[in-house]
């Protein structure tokens, strides 16, 4: 009888057990701050800029996915992959992206990684939540060939005397690009030193100028194939590290 009661008690306790997410002051925060620039200025929609080939253009829609934020210490192998880190940047709503993650184990990290686009594990279904909810963000998802548009840039570019529309929609697993910054990178002024209760900020600039390299002004609709691959290689060169601060 006592055994039975004990068993029942254990059963109930076990079934009601919850991981109580008590605030843990022993962990810290990381912020990846991305500033979008073009022609050396803060990017804005509907402003005139020039491509490296000196063609005037303006942008009416600019969106892209950032994902898979990771921190590493390449000396001791300490590694953190921030779970569920998928962010959709929309120039119509923001000019700077602060990508935050809390519960980071304190310590010294000398490498940070993030990706432009969606990894192949998560790329092929629209039945997901948050930034990947394809019912909310249907303009960033090809539902007939299931996959996300990693990078979308639309606008007008001057072609002779008149403006022509351009549409760049880049996706597909091959065009998923991972950025790596570490102590060998330009702009690395200090290691990322996460302190308990503190916040470390990594500042990165995305320079849109790089996007147009090798893109002919005659190719105004790029959605797949080798032109899309060229453009993906270009957006992989957009991010530049501008500094790190630890607080």
């Amino acid at each position: 009888m006592k055994k039975l009661l004990l068993f029942l008690f254990v059963l109930i306790v076990f079934s009601c057990h919850k991981n109580s997410p008590a605030p843990n002051p022993t962990e810290g925060n990381i912020v990846l701050k991305i500033t979008n620039k073009v022609n050396g200025k803060i990017f804005a929609l509907n402003q005139k800029y020039v491509t490296p080939a000196n063609d005037t253009f303006y942008v009416t829609n600019y969106k892209y996915y950032i994902s898979n934020l990771q921190l590493m210490n390449i000396d001791n192998g300490k590694y953190i992959a921030v779970p569920n880190s998928y962010y959709l940047f929309n120039a119509a709503e923001q000019s700077i992206i602060p990508l935050g993650a809390s519960n980071i184990s304190p310590g010294d990290y000398n490498e940070i990684l993030f990706s432009i686009g969606i990894d192949d594990v998560r790329n092929h279904t629209g039945a997901q939540t948050g930034a990947l909810d394809a019912t909310l963000h249907s303009d960033m998802f090809w539902s007939w060939n299931a996959g996300y548009k990693f990078f979308v840039l639309e606008g007008q570019i001057r072609n002779g005397n008149r403006y022509s529309p351009f549409v760049f929609h880049i996706g597909s697993d091959d065009n998923f690009k991972t950025e790596t910054f570490n102590s060998f990178s330009k702009g690395w002024n200090t290691d990322i030193n996460i302190q308990a209760g503190g916040t470390s900020e990594v500042d990165v600039t995305f320079n849109l100028d790089s996007l147009f390299k090798g893109i002919s002004p005659d190719s105004l609709n790029i959605m797949s194939g080798s032109q899309a691959a060229t453009m993906a290689n270009n957006y992989a060169t957009m991010p530049q590290l501008t500094g790190i601060s630890n607080q």
Binding site: H124, T125, G126, A127, A134, T135, S138, F141, S143, W144, N145, A146
Partner: peptide, 12 residues
């Protein structure tokens, strides 16, 4: 075969 789950087919 461009879609691999029922939910995404419904979105499409």
């Amino acid at each position: 075969g461009g879609v691999h789950d029922l939910e995404t087919q419904i979105i499409a």
